[in-house]
């Protein structure tokens, strides 16, 4: 019997599902403070005194509820970073930089985009964007209560 070349068929599909993720009482307050007052708050554990951001309603190390808000500084230090040069569906057009920054007064680092750097030459960009570099928080003038209401900018 002749071996006939058979066509392979694909059936298209797309997941397009809406959600409204409840931010919860704790993070709702955090996001509202960013939006309304341009303030970044951390949550302090009464037992180990760790200041956590993202804030959370319990300290997983001590396994106790946490409810003591503290205001964090609007500057901090880079703890990790990357410079993205590739296109990812659903992400911003490259290049862009993301950094984990430990804000003054916090014990944990918070990720966000880094603004105001020329990222075309990586060796030049990494002279300024590096672990230990100081950054300042820059809020958008119109804020909607999202983590993307602010970016980091390298100072000095």
């Amino acid at each position: 019997m002749m071996k006939e070349k058979r066509e392979l068929v694909s059936v298209p599909g797309k997941w397009d599902i809406s959600f409204n993720y409840a931010a919860g009482k704790t993070v709702s307050h955090f996001l509202a403070q960013i939006r309304d007052n341009g303030r970044i708050l951390g949550m302090k554990c009464a037992k180990c005194h760790r200041v956590m951001v993202p804030p959370r309603s319990f300290c997983e190390r001590c396994f106790v509820p946490a409810e003591d808000w503290v205001e964090l500084g609007d500057e901090g230090v880079v703890e990790a970073f990357t410079i993205v040069h590739d296109v990812f569906e659903g992400s911003p057009p490259p290049p862009y930089a993301i950094a984990y920054v430990k804000l003054d007064g916090a014990d944990t680092a918070l990720a966000n985009f880094v603004d105001g750097l020329d990222l075309s030459d990586i060796s030049e960009a990494t002279q300024r964007l590096k672990i230990g570099a100081r950054v300042k928080v820059e809020f958008a003038s119109r804020r909607e209560g999202r983590i993307t209401d602010f970016k980091y900018r390298i100072i000095g």
Binding site: A80, F81, D86, F88, S91, I98, L110, A111
Partner: peptide, 27 residues
Amino acid sequence: TQLILNQIWDPRFERAVALNAINMSSF
């Protein structure tokens, strides 16, 4: 794949800042 892996993150904090498996490893 990275669009899908972006969906594993906390939508409030991490998904919005374009985290995926590659930049997680870069950190």
